[in-house]
Amino acid sequence: MTDASALTGGRITPWRRSARRLKLPVAVGISVLFMALAVICVIAPFVAPHDPTFIDPTKSFLGPSLDHPLGTDQLGRDIVSRIIAGARTAVLAPLALAAGAVLLSTVLAVLAGYTGGRIDAVIGRANDILYSIPSLTVAIVIVGVVGGGFTLSIAVLMVFGLPGNIRLLRAAVLERVNLPYIEAAKMSGLSTPRILLTQLVPAISPLIVTSFFLQVTFAIVELSSLSFLGLGVAPGSPDWGLMLAENRAALSSNVWAAAGPALCLVALAVSSNLIGDWLYTRYEKAGRSR
């Protein structure tokens, strides 16, 4: 049936879509693999070959070797082990941040879009103001001035992650609140909470999923930018952004001390981006009505 409807009535976009279909699966496969690897590092930091905090000044800035695949940093700490140790904050924090931001956005967007009226106006107005504020800049100022730790960074970025998601999801809700299937649910006598949970939220779920992965990407970039600036993380802790800041002065001695964590950050952000895109297209395709 999908085939039949795909070519009916001159709506021919599926052809274009298939023509446009990128060789994503390979890229997505790699992304998933990398994500899995990162998660393993989170669950089992003991796979690291060395103690990530073990200092040995005699081994300052060694190049890659069998013992130290990516060499060492100034204090002689093993880069690979520090990257593995850093995976915890690099992966968990963005996930938590994105989960919080998207969950909260969904609640607020559904509330605003479905109820409309004054609640919508208030949420919309506040959202517009928040939306026009550059999140990273504000995070730098607040985290810097208050001198707070990692939790504060996450909290601030979570709040500033709301407006974009709320806008997107609220628009999606507005597009759907008056669609027949929502009205039919009302007509059949379902309670409002049930309509929201079993009709509206599933209907926008592809967007929620995409928002989540996009937010993960943003979070990876913004959180690591903060730690690169030395904000939010304790000096000396194995954080990818911080490692880059520490080791960037010594690019000529051991480039991998900075490039290692840099590439890991890029790969992580790209992976979540690609997975999000791919899930969205799949999800949307499965649910696409024509």
Binding site: L179, Y181, I182, A184, A185, G189, Q199, P202, G287, R290
Partner: peptide, 26 residues
């Protein structure tokens, strides 16, 4: 009520069975 547009009358993310179940349960 039954609606006009066959493409928006059913929730794209829910199966036919679950669309019918809501009303039947009530």
């Amino acid at each position: 009520m039954a609606f006009q547009d066959p493409y928006s009358t059913l929730n794209p993310q829910r199966s036919v069975g679950s669309a019918l179940r809501d009303g039947l349960r009530l």
